[in-house]
Design a protein around this nucleic acid. Structure first.
Lengths: 215, 215
DNA sequence: ACCTGAACACCGTTCAAGT
DNA sequence: ACCTGAACACCGTTCAAGT
């Protein structure tokens, strides 16, 4: 075929096809040859648009992070609302694409959407009165919690087979085989309960940053 | 060479060499051929001791989890001490081998040390009076937080290059390039602050599970 | 039982060749 | 500029062959 009149590929098409492939078959399924086949071209064609496979993954990761909503910061409410909104939106974005979380959780690097999110979150906390060093810690702990919760389901981490839990070895895991069945409730319940505890605990440590009670 | 009098390999030697290779060069560096070379044998030899590469990784992951100390549960103190001890030991074990965290965080599956840890943590919380459904959530949120914090440094996720943070794009990240330098302080501070907040917040939600104040 | 080399179907990436 | 096939140095795994 050689060079077509109109390019067969574009960065956008490569990225969206890669994300779809990762979502449906997992990160190991994304090979340059497989991705190229999905796009109807030969493997090396991708190198006209990206210099390495990792650069493709960076672009995919950034489109996922771009979905995170940080508009909750700076609405005038106290910092808790902004933090809760951000964390929930962050988790929703990652949970929609759990397979890419291990790559994404390496940090923003030079990815624009990742840096923009970090800027908004850190800036939001500082704007609400948090000292910068503390604001950094808060952003870090939210990332820990969100990435950990999206990285892999807690509930699905336990095999769905009663015989895996011998009561002689694991006296308290008699019902662990039921976890997988209630995956969403368990994981979402744990995230929401943990997030509330985190925010409540931070508020307890910093009462001076809250609006005075009782109007 | 064919079969030697004394086996050249053992599961233990394979596992410890694999862990050392993962620690020093990362998860992608662990190939069966590379590992075999490190052990002084040819690639297929490994298949006399493990049926797949994933089975090797399972064994490696389980030795990491086996280091976690769960003895803090059931010392008679309230649940907070057990939870804090467990979480800190859990994080220390994972942070010592960050490269295997993405694999490990998939859950215990059928790995004995992983199940033993889950059994002790869940049993400890239930023994301290937590309703099973809540105890499950607490174990899940600790896993989220620990795995997220060990998965990748927050601080090292930001490149050590001031020009990466254009003030026009990221007005609040003017000092982000300094994060990497203070990696340990940032990450350990965030973990410890977050863990305390989590425990404080849980205590607030469940005052009935704490010993009465003031003796 | 436990090792070997050869083989199979894969990888990421480079490069000269085509238009 | 943007695609191709051939090639290089890799993968995980199977298998017949050796002792």
């Amino acid at each position: 075929m050689a060079r077509p009149r109109k390019p067969l590929l574009s960065r956008e098409r490569i990225v969206s096809t890669a994300l779809a492939l990762i979502d449906s078959e997992g990160l190991p399924a994304l090979s340059t040859r497989r991705l190229a086949a999905e796009l109807g071209v030969s493997g090396p064609s991708l190198y006209n648009h990206f210099t390495t496979k990792d650069e493709i993954l960076d672009a995919v990761a950034d489109t996922v992070i771009a979905e995170v909503d940080v508009s909750g910061f700076g609405t005038g409410a106290d910092w808790r609302a902004g933090l809760l909104d951000w964390a929930r939106s962050y988790r929703a974005a990652l949970a929609a694409h759990p397979q890419i979380v291990p790559f994404l959780a390496q940090g923003p690097g030079r990815r624009p959407a990742g840096l923009k999110m970090a800027d908004a979150a850190f800036g939001g906390m500082v704007g609400a009165g948090w000292p910068p060093a503390q604001a950094t810690r808060v952003c870090a702990m939210v990332r820990y919690f969100v990435a950990g919760s999206a990285l892999g389901s807690f509930a699905r981490g336990f095999v769905d087979d009663p015989s895996a839990y011998d009561p002689a070895d694991y006296p308290h895991l008699g019902r662990a085989h039921l976890l997988a069945e209630h995956q969403r409730q368990v994981d979402e319940g744990a995230f929401e309960t943990g997030l509330r505890a985190l925010v409540d605990g931070l508020a307890l440590q910093h009462p001076e940053l809250l609006p005075p009670k009782g109007g």
